[in-house]
Design a protein around this nucleic acid. Structure first.
Lengths: 143, 143
DNA sequence: CCTAGACCTTCCCATCATGGGAGGGTCAAC
DNA sequence: GTTGACCCTCCCATGATGGGAAGGTCTAGG
């Protein structure tokens, strides 16, 4: 099949399919005489693999490693385990960071009168004014 | 003060200070005769404001709006409220997405034998094999 | 007076994953 | 023989950040 069908079947955009090949995640794809790429079902499976891994927010570099593992029938599950565990840890620390932000933001939003007057704890906090509560965005307290 | 001192006082890198000016978040900075930028304490405060807002993951575009509001003594707190509420919503949906990923990943990691044999539910899941449990990464189920 | 070093400037490039679009080739159907 | 749906490559843009080159400026020490 040609690239647009591979795209349709895999859910990966035509642009990205070519890109994955260009950066070496996909082996070089066979070409027809006119230069058109020819995709096998196996490559479509690789594309689905990539798509699922992207949905778990793995980087393309990591996905490349995972795909190699998948293709390697002599792999150890511990290798995939290690990669996944490291990624999970990163996800968790990102979640923690975002939650901290969200919590502070929520408290500021709750305090904000949301009216037509200028006084606003949200802006005060960003400006470093010690607000009424213990809201304080961690920052740059170098002075 | 010159740029490196402004950087030290604000916690914003020299590169970024220049960048913020270049994209118009900061007003054009006064120059000495030799072309060196001259920073006032007020601009340092702006930089701290930006830094705190970045710590809450506001985009520079949004920060530009917040900074304008902060400078506008005729603002309504509702304007900041709206911006912050929209941002909070975005943070929350990102958290939810990451948590979904983390949860699936955790369950896969738990199932993975983590040994020297090739069988691995993590890779199976990425490859679309319906694993033992109900682990299934949402993807591309177009066939 | 000269030099070393610590600044400052601008400009270009790289990141990461993704998309847009130009300019041009190929092929099938009508 | 043209139209339209494909395909190709190449360049550019995103957002926030850093790296580094090439070159100007200023100050302190010899």
């Amino acid at each position: 099949m040609k690239i647009s069908e591979a795209s349709r079947k895999s859910g990966v955009s035509v642009k990205m399919i070519r890109y994955y090949e260009a950066i070496g995640i996909l082996q070089p794809i066979d070409r027809l005489e006119n230069g058109y790429r020819l995709y096998s079902d196996i490559v479509v499976d690789d594309l689905k693999f990539i798509s699922r891994a992207r949905n778990l927010d793995f980087s393309l570099e990591t996905i490349s490693a995972l795909l190699s593992l998948w293709r390697d029938k002599n792999r150890s599950s511990s290798e995939a385990h290690t990669i996944a565990a490291r990624h999970l840890q990163m996800l968790e620390s990102r979640i923690a960071g975002l939650q901290e932000m969200a919590e502070l933001l929520r408290s500021l939003i709750t305090c904000c009168p949301d009216d037509d007057k200028p006084s606003c704890p949200i802006l005060d906090c960003l400006a470093g004014k010690p607000a009424g509560g213990d809201n304080q965005v961690m920052a740059t307290r170098s002075e």
